[in-house]
Every structure is written in structure tokens, then in C-alpha cells.
Amino acid sequence: MIGFPDSVHGGAAALLLDEVTGMHIASQRGPDEPPNKDFRTAYLKAMYLKAIPAPGTVLVRSRIVCVDGRKNYIEAQIDEDGGVLVKGEVLYIALKSSSKL
């Protein structure tokens, strides 16, 4: 999880973005729909603005930008004390065999 001393590795930061945004999509399912993850990450862009301190506590925010058919566009950011450390853009594609997300 550590990249440079006292900093989170960039791959771990991308993992945080991917997991939080994926949970965000899954949480939007209707109450009668199963909570499985029937979508896949198609694209993930992470823009590293500042190092994420480690150890430390951060807040990951996620926002669904648009749903276009099977495409789910999400924006996210990792914050610490109100400052943005990492920004992310993620595209998820629902599997053809899946029901509406």
C-alpha cells in the first residue's frame, strides 16, 4: 500500500476509486434486485494532485454523472481535510445478460 515513504501507492489509490465507485453503482439497485455486481470497469483514469499520506484517514466521494444504456459514467475524488488529493473518472459497462442497474 505504500509507494514513497509516508505515501499511498498510486495503484492503491486507483483501487480505492474503483471499489468506491463500484459500490456506488451497486447501491443504486432497486430493493427487489439482487446486490450482485453485474458490470465491469471499462476505463479508469486517476489524476494524482497530491500525495495521499500514510498512515492517514481520507474521504472518497463518488458521483454518478450519467447512465447511457449499459454505460455508467462516474466521477470520484479522494480528499483529506477538504483538499482534493486524487480525482478519478470511471466508466462501467453492464454485462449484456444483466438486468437494469
Rank of each mutant, 00 (worst) to 15 (best):
D38H: 12
V58W: 02
I25A: 13
V86L: 06
L95V: 11
I74Y: 00
Y43T: 06
E75T: 12
R61E: 14
I74V: 15
A46V: 00
K87M: 07
V84K: 12
G69V: 09
K96G: 14
V67H: 05
V58Q: 01
S62C: 13
G56T: 07
A12H: 01
L91M: 12
A94S: 15
T41R: 02
E75P: 07
I93K: 10
L85S: 06
G82T: 06
R61W: 03
T21G: 03
L17M: 08
K96E: 15
Y48V: 01
A51S: 15
P34F: 03
A76N: 02
G56K: 02
L85C: 09
D79L: 15
P55E: 05
L17R: 02
A76C: 13
I78M: 07
L16N: 00
K87E: 12
R61K: 13
P55L: 04
P34G: 02
E89M: 09
D38T: 11
R63V: 06
P31E: 01
K50R: 15
Y92C: 09
A46N: 00
A76K: 01
T21Y: 05
R29C: 08
Y48H: 06
L91T: 13
V84A: 14
R63W: 03
A14T: 00
N36I: 11
N72W: 12
V90A: 14
A51H: 12
R29N: 12
V90Y: 05
P35A: 01
A12Q: 00
A76I: 01
L91K: 10
R29E: 07
G88K: 07
L91V: 15
P34Y: 03
E75G: 06
P53C: 10
D79Y: 05
M47S: 14
I74N: 01
A54R: 08
V58D: 07
R29I: 11
A46D: 00
L85H: 09
G88T: 06
N36K: 04
R70W: 13
V60I: 14
G30L: 03
V84H: 09
E75Q: 12
Q77G: 11
I74E: 01
L91W: 08
G69Y: 08
D38S: 11
G83D: 13
D68Y: 04
P34I: 07
E80W: 03
F39Y: 10
K45T: 09
K45A: 06
N72M: 15
A46C: 04
D18F: 04
R29T: 11
A51N: 09
A94R: 15
D68E: 14
L15C: 03
P34C: 03
G82W: 08
Y73E: 01
K96N: 13
Q77W: 06
V84I: 15
L59I: 15
E75R: 13
L49P: 06
I74H: 01
E80F: 02
G22C: 04
V60E: 08
V84T: 15
R63M: 03
L59H: 09
V65W: 03
E19W: 04
D79N: 07
D32N: 07
E89G: 08
A76Q: 02
A12D: 01
I93R: 12
L91A: 08
F39R: 05
L49R: 15
Y92N: 11
R61N: 10
A26K: 04
Q77Y: 05
Y48S: 02
N36W: 09
D32C: 02
M23I: 09
N72I: 14
L44R: 00
A12C: 06
D68Q: 10
E80M: 14
A13V: 00
V58A: 05
S27N: 02
V67F: 00
L49T: 08
